[in-house]
Amino acid sequence: MALEIERKFLVRDLSITDSLAGERLTQGYLSHDKNATVRVRTTGDTAWLTIKGKTVGATRSEFEYAIPLADAQQMLAELCGAGVIDKTRYRLPQGELCWEIDVFHGDNEGLIVAEIELPSEKTSFEKPAWLGEEVTGETRYYNSALSTKPYKSWP
């Protein structure tokens, strides 16, 4: 079984991305079930279908498959509704690990989140000074939740 072990933080200083090249991602959700989400994502001329299980701690099952770009674009247009996520992702290696910093656009403008995937929940890592509050496990920060209740609508 494929597992994703991920910790998520808000970002307090976006200048960390100044020297990094970002990639624009578009993603939408085909299913928002509490036990599994099904996501379609595109970047450039590449597309994936991803199924993620329920998060327990910082771990969940994850299955990802490359799909034809035209299929993904049709799914985004016809099956995902208005809650399509638009963001720019920056990757910042840290030793054997890598931070992924997502700068959201559209209805989620103003939200900046950093995630780090870990080999185990017990893996220690350095927390850079540009990190803010940890939001691991706070469901409103899940991309699937942001697609139905965007950041701009939060009180």
Score class of each variant (00 low, 15 high):
T148K: 12
N108Y: 07
L92A: 11
D13Q: 12
K122Q: 09
S31W: 05
K8V: 02
E126F: 04
D13H: 13
E117F: 08
F125K: 07
D102P: 03
T43A: 00
I116F: 10
E115R: 00
K127W: 06
T43I: 00
R89P: 06
P150D: 02
G110W: 08
M75L: 14
G132P: 09
S124W: 07
G83D: 12
S153R: 08
K52W: 14
Y151T: 02
S147I: 01
H105P: 00
E100H: 04
L49D: 12
D45K: 14
G22E: 08
D45T: 13
R60H: 14
Y90W: 04
L131K: 09
E6Q: 11
L118Y: 08
V11H: 12
E121M: 02
E115L: 03
V113R: 01
N143F: 00
I85C: 01
I101F: 04
Q73M: 11
P128M: 04
Y141D: 06
P68W: 08
I16P: 04
G106R: 09
P68R: 15
L79I: 03
F125D: 01
V40A: 00
K34E: 14
C80H: 09
A72L: 07
A72M: 08
K87R: 09
T123H: 11
G57H: 09
Q94N: 08
I51Y: 15
V40K: 05
K152M: 06
Y29W: 13
V135F: 10
G110A: 03
S31G: 08
G83N: 07
E4R: 05
G57M: 11
G57E: 10
M1K: 14
E100Q: 06
Q94D: 15
T50F: 15
E62A: 04
I101S: 03
I51H: 15
W99K: 09
L97N: 10
G44C: 13
E133A: 14
V40P: 10
Y29P: 11
S124K: 14
V56A: 13
T43L: 02
A2D: 15
I112P: 01
K52L: 10
G137F: 06
A21P: 06
